[in-house]
Design a protein around this nucleic acid. Structure first.
Lengths: 135, 135
DNA sequence: CAAGCGTATTATATCATATGATACACTTGA
DNA sequence: TCAAGTGTATCATATGATATAATACGCTTG
């Protein structure tokens, strides 16, 4: 694992996943959580590539996905910016939360757990971790 | 999507995932849920390959993972059998349930949801689906 | 108009995935 | 005994995703 700063942002890069997916996931989180504010400029393709020591094409790949997610808006000659639409971020979060929850339910179901057991399991796990700070 | 019978078992194969992963996931589920009983013989590598119209090597790949999971035992010259150990199945289920739950919590967390919101979300979703039969 | 943007193209390399063919060692039942 | 059915191993080959590298174009701003 490798922790790198790009401007005020921190990215952790390893080899467990495709590089563009790691950038994508972490940028999504930064925007969804509001660490990057509405309309705020995000690092340019070249800057990201240089700071993370990876190829600009790889960063491009991630940035194009962000655009499809509705989380960013690109302005030619200026750069890439977080969306100014709170609604788009809300929609993104709803969409992915739904997907994550469905996948989770489906996975647990395929192991033979029913809804009661799934709830019990998640409650137990989240209580174990529950003494961490709220955020 | 393509639904195929292998002996008394049904497999659905598409191109959304690697073939060996689809076999692996579905075999895991069949054993974890008890559709395939303790010590029961599972289809041979060649039979699976023939019925699913895929390469034996691809089936082998999946079967070797099942072995590592502790869900099957191979007997040279005889075939592959579901484990006779209820304990191993229980351990498998615990391990994956933990992994699925942790991934889910982490994913939701990265979207900015806190534990309360996660629970609310999952409850809402499982209630929507809740009128399906228990199984 | 230079510097910094996103974008496009072409080439190359590696790895995971999948297929195909063949062969070997083992077990069972006829 | 031996044929048939097992798991296993080893080649070769093909494709797609991932990543790098180099280069160039069009747009925007100071």
């Amino acid at each position: 694992m490798d922790e790198r700063q790009v401007g005020s942002l921190s990215f952790s890069i390893d080899f467990s996943q495709p590089l563009y997916e790691q950038i994508l996931t972490q940028m999504r989180s930064l925007i969804a959580r509001g660490t990057i504010g509405l309309g705020e400029k995000i690092p340019s393709v070249r800057e990201m590539a240089h700071e993370l020591k990876i190829n600009p094409n790889t960063v491009m790949h991630a940035y194009q996905e962000l655009e499809r997610d509705g989380l960013t808006e690109k302005r030619r000659g200026q750069g890439t910016f977080a969306t100014t639409s709170m609604m788009k971020i809300k929609q993104f979060k709803e969409r992915f939360a739904l997907e994550y929850a469905q996948d989770f339910l489906e996975n647990m179901h395929s192991l033979g757990f029913n809804l009661n057991e799934i709830h019990t399991y998640l409650t137990r796990l989240s209580q174990e971790k529950g003494h961490r700070k709220n955020d």
